[in-house]
Write a protein that binds this DNA or RNA. Structure first.
Length: 260
DNA sequence: ATGGTCGATCGTCGA
């Protein structure tokens, strides 16, 4: 089973690119972030025509996440618990059948947090604390867990072409990286890092200043696996060619292959 | 140091 995550930066602007990708790769599950539309604006029928079930958690103008699946979607839950005042659409969970059992898949869009020293950065750190709390609860279940999305976290210096360019950025702050490590220490595996110890693997290149042409990228889209999901891990990868296609997102798809 | 680029939406925010 292939589970893919992709920040598509606007599902309506990216519909043709998304359909092209799905036709070519046919992932079993596709987690999307930054759909940038309300649920009613999501082009569900275009994906349903390709055999996918669709669950969205949208919002007007920005944010918004979705899970598309060739298999059943059950027990769909929207929103990250822990703060009733948080109206951002950044979290959706679902159960998906994998062989004879179920796995829990989450599509998440962690706040960017820039600029540092503002309430946006505080919101990011608070959201990460809630992510850790929710993950702790989900890990208590025996259902294999796949946490896929745009984490807006550069975990280590080797996850950036120019780490020094990010030292004042929310994505690479010590507090941000520490919270991400705390998350990993719950027992989660960074699937791409586990399969690819080499540096130079990036998932995002800014639109500006020819970043992709210079390969001036960062690795901020991650798939974290519970230990019983990591036991099923066969391979993982990053589809960087998508960034060179027509009218691309600034992020590319990241995927894992799990044994059925 | 500044401005450089996108999407959603239509002046400006978020990234």
């Amino acid at each position: 089973m292939i589970i893919t995550t992709w920040n598509i930066n606007g599902v309506r602007a990216r519909l043709e690119a998304a359909l092209t990708y799905v036709r070519a790769h046919a992932p079993d599950v596709l987690c999307l972030q930054e759909i940038k539309t309300v649920d009613e604006g999501f082009p569900s029928s275009a994906f349903e025509d390709l055999g996918y079930n669709v669950a969205t958690h949208g919002q007007k103008g920005f944010n918004g996440v979705a899970i598309l699946s060739k298999h059943r979607l059950e027990d769909v839950t929207r929103g990250l618990p822990g703060d009733d005042s948080d109206a951002h659409a950044r979290w959706i969970e679902a159960l998906v059948p994998l062989g004879s059992r179920m796995i829990r898949v989450v599509s998440l869009y962690l706040p960017n947090g820039n600029p540092i020293g503002t309430d946006k950065f505080s919101y990011k750190l608070g959201w990460m604390a809630r992510l850790i709390a929710r993950s702790r609860i989900l890990l208590e279940e025996e259902t294999p867990l796949v946490l896929a999305g745009d984490y807006n976290v550069i975990p280590e210096p080797e996850d950036a072409k120019r780490p020094q360019a990010w030292v004042n950025d929310a994505l690479f702050q010590p507090e941000t990286r520490r919270a991400f490590r705390t998350l990993l220490h719950l027992g989660l595996t960074d699937a791409v890092r586990a399969c690819h110890p080499d540096r130079g693997i990036y998932t995002f290149w800014d639109y500006q200043a020819g970043a992709f042409q210079k390969d001036d990228g960062i690795r901020i889209d991650h798939i974290l696996l519970s230990s019983n999901a990591a036991d099923l891990l066969k391979s993982s990868g990053v589809d960087r060619a998508v960034r060179a296609a027509e009218k691309p997102s600034d992020h590319v798809p990241v995927w894992v292959e799990l044994a059925d």
